[in-house]
Design a protein around this nucleic acid. Structure first.
Length: 793
DNA sequence: GCCGGAACTTAGGATGCTTAGC
DNA sequence: GCTAAGCATCCTAAGTTCCGGC
């Protein structure tokens, strides 16, 4: 679908998947670094990421200043939304009907339409040969970055206190374990065994090794048996539409233990005065005390919500007395909790084993069900315990009390002819139903959000697997239809109907940037996050020209889970012009797509292809990116480690595309510093080894003494070993750095057709367990069994 | 056609367990 | 044998989509 004379952004800056998320140049850089990987990639890669990180920081500051200016310009006040979503938006969105454009404008835009190009194949070519790699490293000054909102706030105190709390926590933990260590050493001194006993011990050790080997063999056998017993549902005929099962039997959910009152000697203090709380108030106070090390408890909203709900649990007397959270001292409760945590950590092997067995017993009893005469694992058979609601980001309900769920709140779903689970003694179920058109086993309503929670099957079950398979099949269907669909929305960009144009631009973003659909949300009920259809004017900035690119859209918004999406993307002139139009006469808080919602969008999509929704584009683009990246990055001549690295890089490209971020591990800086120190040490060793080799060579020169030649060989080997180890460490450091803020597992589990990975493993002769762990292999058993080498997504 | 709720998938953080390296 | 780091699993919040009722 290339068009003559087109200024094809995709061809200019190929590599579709990689482009998205962080912008074209960054992906040129990425490619450059990837290419260098074949040689000494480590340095290039580390430099690249360090560079990006520093640019992110710079850009963040610029962005903040800009935003403040914008806010001041739009009348100041809250940076948030101006318009209320949902009800008010309904009126706003349909206001005045759909506008039409004049013929003249349409004609003029038709001329520009040739600029529009979306070509997967072209975009997926990694990198551009036109731009020298080194230049890219220099050019990437303004950085295409993406950072967590959380981090933006890090300088504002709250996370500081959390860090402080964590540091204190860590120190105390270290102190306690140091004490334990000392005690242990003392005991060891006292209990030192006589030599005879020691030798007996070594015999025991030997036996243990044999036992270990036997256990391994047993494990292997069990694995084989398990494999044989696996229900190959994918080889069976499907039930008629809507029917999920024909027989379902289970034991009902497992309830958390009742509250165990605190010891009498523990006190709560109000305004410095000792106060004995009633059981209800004490329990809820403990929930708060348990979280004192967490940043949550420093947030005003969290504190206010907690206090409001806590007071509801108090007796009249308590309520009269306790009126200010600031005057509450939960210190003793908090210390008690910490002590319990420590005790848990310091359990002996035996204690741990007893506990493990007890848990296993619970799992065996409640963790499985019989579905159509097959034993299936339940995903979440435990009822959520009570506690304080941990809504993410600026959730208005964070801190509210999540109440204890009783059997009287729970609806059970099972077969009529099955043995209905017994409710716990003295209780009864809210309802028992026999609905085989749904997949859940039990459900209840959550008191905080009013949402229904479900007990469902594990990801490796038939019900989940079948749906997963179906999902990827729909995405594969899109592959053959996508050109037509793109042509259609390209045409729609010049429609006379405003709604149609908005739909086309939204689709362009969903397709090109893998944005989520973006449902409307009720204000005040959840954190202020958006997706494509719910974008507001304040979430984008238009640049006629930026960083040498024309028509650049700068996105900055909080998406699902309050993860920040930040990206600067060059778009076609037509998209750019439409965006300008959509933003005319609007306030920052107004909807960008005021004549569009996810319902309308999905309705349109399903008319283009059965089963097509906005979400399918994400699955399709993620999977196709993986497939193309694997083709690009790996070949059969690489060694195992290199092959795996290429797989991880392909996976990483998808994670970046889908904006799957994670908070850097708490110990990241320390662990990197440790690794760097090791690398330095190893470098010194290498220098020494080289010098020794040189010396040995000198001594052996002209001397036929075999001993001296042997020494040379020995030194040579030592040096090589040193080099290998150094390289390994550098690779590790690079990999760790790359993964610092990227979560790979989400895309692997939810977006990447497993058949692509299975086929890749077969073609590359890589063992599947190198890319999928046990759980993942279980989940994707259907794909593992049905995929051949020649599978194409 | 809109709305709200039900049903399901997707998501990152917390926690516990295992393994590598000293 | 110990410790730190990495990995797996658990947990549950937060999305998307579908569907029935008005």
């Amino acid at each position: 679908m290339k068009e003559c004379g087109a200024v094809n952004i995709c061809l200019k800056s190929p590599q579709r998947g990689l482009q998205r998320g962080t912008g074209v140049k960054k992906w040129h850089l990425l490619h450059t670094a990837l290419t260098r990987l074949q040689g000494s990639f480590a340095v290039a890669w580390a430099l690249f990421w360090r560079h990006v990180a520093s640019e992110m920081e710079k850009d963040k500051k610029t962005k903040q200043v800009k935003r403040e200016k914008r806010e001041a310009g739009s009348g100041g006040g809250t940076p948030g939304r101006v318009s209320k979503k949902v009800k008010s938006r309904g009126v706003k969105k349909s206001q005045g009907g759909d506008e039409t454009y004049g013929e003249k404008e349409v004609k003029q835009e038709q001329v520009e339409s040739s600029e529009f190009q979306v070509d997967d194949a072209a975009r997926l070519q990694l990198g551009s040969k036109e731009e020298p790699a080194d230049e890219d490293f220099v050019q990437e000054k303004r950085g295409k970055k993406r950072k967590r909102q959380k981090e933006d706030e890090s300088g504002k105190g709250t996370s500081c206190s959390s860090e402080k709390a964590a540091a204190v926590k860590k120190k105390k933990r270290t102190d306690i374990s140091a004490e334990a260590k000392t005690d242990k050493k003392k005991n060891e001194g006292k209990l030192k065994m006589p030599k005879k006993e020691e030798s007996e011990k070594s015999v025991t050790k030997k036996k243990t090794k044999e036992e270990i080997e036997a256990a391994r063999t047993l494990k292997r056998k069990l694995k084989e048996e398990e494999e044989q017993q696996r229900w190959r549902w994918w080889e069976e005929e499907k039930y008629e539409a809507g029917i999920k099962w024909k027989f379902l039997e289970h034991k009902g959910p497992y309830f958390p233990p009742e509250y165990n009152p605190l010891p009498e000697n523990l006190n709560f203090y109000y305004n410095g005065e000792k106060l004995k709380l009633g059981l209800r108030a004490e329990e809820v106070a403990l929930y708060f005390a348990q979280m004192l090390d967490h940043e949550y408890t420093t947030r005003e909203v969290f504190r206010n919500n907690f206090f409001k709900d806590w007071r509801k649990e108090m007796t009249l007397e308590e309520r009269m007395l306790i009126t200010d959270l600031e005057k509450c001292d939960f210190g003793e409760y908090h210390n008690f909790h910490k002590q319990k945590v420590e005790e848990r950590k310091n359990r002996t092997k035996e204690e741990k084993q007893v506990l493990k067995e007890a848990n296993q017993k619970i799992t065996d009893e409640y963790g499985f069900c019989m579905l159509d005469h097959h034993r299936e694992r339940i995903g979440n058979f435990k009822i959520e315990p009570p506690g304080l609601f941990r809504g993410r980001g600026d959730h208005p309900k964070q801190g509210l009390l999540k109440k204890r769920i009783r059997p009287e709140d729970v609806i059970i779903n099972c077969s009529k002819e099955s043995h209905v689970p017994e409710p716990p003694a003295g209780h009864q179920w809210k309802e028992v139903r026999h609905d085989n058109t749904v997949t859940w086993l039990a459900s209840w309503t959550d008191n905080v959000q009013g949402a229904t929670k479900y007990v469902m099957l594990n990801a490796n079950s038939k019900l989940k697997g079948e749906k997963d398979w179906e999902k990827y099949e729909v995405a594969r269907q899109l592959k053959s239809r996508v050109d037509g669909i793109r042509a259609q929305y390209k045409d729609d960009l010049k429609s006379k109907q405003m709604g149609t144009r908005q739909r086309a631009v939204a689709l362009y973003f969903i397709d090109k940037l893998a944005l989520r659909a973006g449902n409307e949300k009720e204000e005040g009920e959840t954190a202020d996050t958006v997706g494509c259809c719910s974008l507001r004017v304040e979430h984008i900035m238009l640049h006629d020209s930026l960083d040498g690119e024309k028509c650049v859209v700068e996105f900055d918004f909080l998406g699902k889970d309050c993860i920040r999406y930040y990206n600067k993307v060059p778009v076609t002139k037509r998209v750019f012009k439409n965006l300008k139009l959509f933003m005319e006469n609007k306030q920052p808080g107004d909807d960008l797509f005021d004549r569009l919602n996810t319902g309308m969008l999905n309705k349109h999509l399903s008319s283009l292809m059965p089963g097509l929704t906005a979400k399918v584009f994400r699955t399709y683009n993620a999977s196709i990116t993986l497939q193309q990246q694997l083709k690009e990055l790996s070949n059969a001549l690489l060694n195992q480690a290199e092959k795996l690295l290429s797989y991880n890089r392909a996976n990483r490209a998808v994670a970046i595309l889908c904006n799957h971020q994670r908070a850097p591990p708490k110990s990241f800086e320390q662990s990197m510093a440790n690794l760097q120190a090791k690398i330095e040490g190893r470098k010194e060793q290498l220098t020494l080894a080289k010098a020794e080799l040189k010396k040995a060579k000198k001594e052996a020169k002209g001397n036929s003494d075999t001993k001296l030649q042997f020494v040379v060989e020995k030194k040579k080997k030592a040096m090589q070993r040193c080099e290998e180890q150094l390289l390994k460490m550098e690779v590790q450091a690079t990999d760790r750095e790359e993964n610092k803020e990227i979560a790979l597992s989400t895309s692997k589990l939810n977006y990447l057709d497993p058949r692509i990975s299975v086929a890749w493993c077969k073609n590359m002769e890589v063992q599947l367990d190198k890319i999928y762990n046990k759980t993942q292999r279980d989940k994707f058993a259907w794909a593992i069994h049905m995929t051949e080498k020649d599978f194409e997504f």
